[in-house]
């Protein structure tokens, strides 16, 4: 089976857009994190598709790396999120304003 590169890229773009809108629109921090993960997946899809189309292994190697880093990032992100929920009883980004440093 041979998927044309254009299709793969269109799919990646669509997934990226979904992830981006999720990260931008949702107020619950968990979903923001989810959106970021979806965007990472879209980028990975584009990398793998390119790698297959040009028969170069670089893209797939890159994807492996990305996967590992994303997993680590999710581990840290989720544990922060858990702590936040325990301490503040909320995950609403609009209520988390203490970054302002006041």
């Amino acid at each position: 089976m041979n998927v044309p590169l254009e299709h793969a890229l269109l799919l990646a773009t669509a997934v990226f857009g979904i992830g981006l809108s999720c990260a931008l629109i949702r107020r619950e921090l968990l979903f923001v994190l989810l959106g970021v993960e979806i965007m990472l997946c879209a980028a990975g899809l584009a990398l793998v598709a390119g790698s297959a189309a040009w028969r170069q292994p670089d893209g797939q190697v890159f994807w492996m790396l990305l996967l590992a880093i994303a997993a680590a990032e999710v581990a840290v992100g989720l544990s922060l999120l858990l702590h936040l929920h325990r301490r503040r009883r909320t995950g609403d980004v609009d209520e988390l304003r203490s970054l302002r440093g006041e």
Partner: peptide, 14 residues
């Protein structure tokens, strides 16, 4: 601009 609101930041990022 740096008012500590995460949603403002992510909007700027986006």
């Amino acid at each position: 601009l740096s008012n500590g609101s995460v949603s403002r930041y992510r909007l700027a990022l986006g």
